[in-house]
Design a binder for these strands. Sequence first.
DNA 1: TGGAAAATATTGAATATTCAACGATTCCGG
DNA 2: CCGGAATCGTTGAATATTCAATATTTTCCA
Lengths: 145, 145
Amino acid sequence: MARSPSKPITEHLAYLLAQANREINRQLDARFRKEGVPVEQWRILKVLSDGKGHSMGELAEAVLLNHPTLTKMIDRMVSDSLVYRVQDADDRRKVLMFSSDRGKALTQRLNSLALSQEAFIAESYGNKATADLKRLLESLIEKAN
Amino acid sequence: MARSPSKPITEHLAYLLAQANREINRQLDARFRKEGVPVEQWRILKVLSDGKGHSMGELAEAVLLNHPTLTKMIDRMVSDSLVYRVQDADDRRKVLMFSSDRGKALTQRLNSLALSQEAFIAESYGNKATADLKRLLESLIEKAN
DNA sequence: TGGAAAATATTGAATATTCAACGATTCCGG
DNA sequence: CCGGAATCGTTGAATATTCAATATTTTCCA
């Protein structure tokens, strides 16, 4: 008896997520191209835009990067004068990250590029579908933790 | 007048997708750990499991990898005797990839690990939510292309 | 309080990915 | 049918990421 064919890769949730993620990221990257900034740096800048200092660990968690990768990306951003390090006085193991003025200005430009992308998506995809998708993703993430 | 705070990163579709993708992939990777195979190799093996030869370009598209990355991953898989190359007789620029017997056996073990993960997700997340999410992702991907 | 254990961030080596350039083959207009 | 342009896959160099090990500081408990 022949084995029944297994479910195609395109029907797996993990694959659909990877595919959607890749496509959306690619589009966002294309918009960020003219600023020469990868999506991860936008996330970092955005988290830092509250003006409060954020530790490396906190940042790594928030921007979905592991510690060594973040350290090296921050090194580059420091070279570009987008962010700076301050040792935490209360816990000297920690380093607090802050956005520079240059970083803040860049953040605003990136934010508007990102918003325009979201608008573009919502337009072709529909507001309801977008909202539903976001809600489902939030709930999946919550369940997965 | 103070600038109104911009939308937090956690409310962006691109971020939610990245977060969900990372989490699901991490879980899948954990299950694949004992076979020592990254998720990408499972995708490759799965696509090749139809027994037909697939060109590198076709594969790269299907498994969401760009050409040079795929070439090098295939090199490793050839070393591990999971797949093999055959030059396409009809178009000698092309290389057709096939899964070896060893590759096929591994594919089946990986498939069942993947299915068990899907079952696990559907259990805590709900069948309806899972189906809705898949449908929305498919539709997003379609619109994005 | 002393010192082992935990938490935090960085480093260096190993590994993987990406970008640009290349070689081989096929396609196609004239 | 010839020759330039396009397609396909690979390679090497540059870049980025990851893993394991390290240094520093703090926590905690015996």
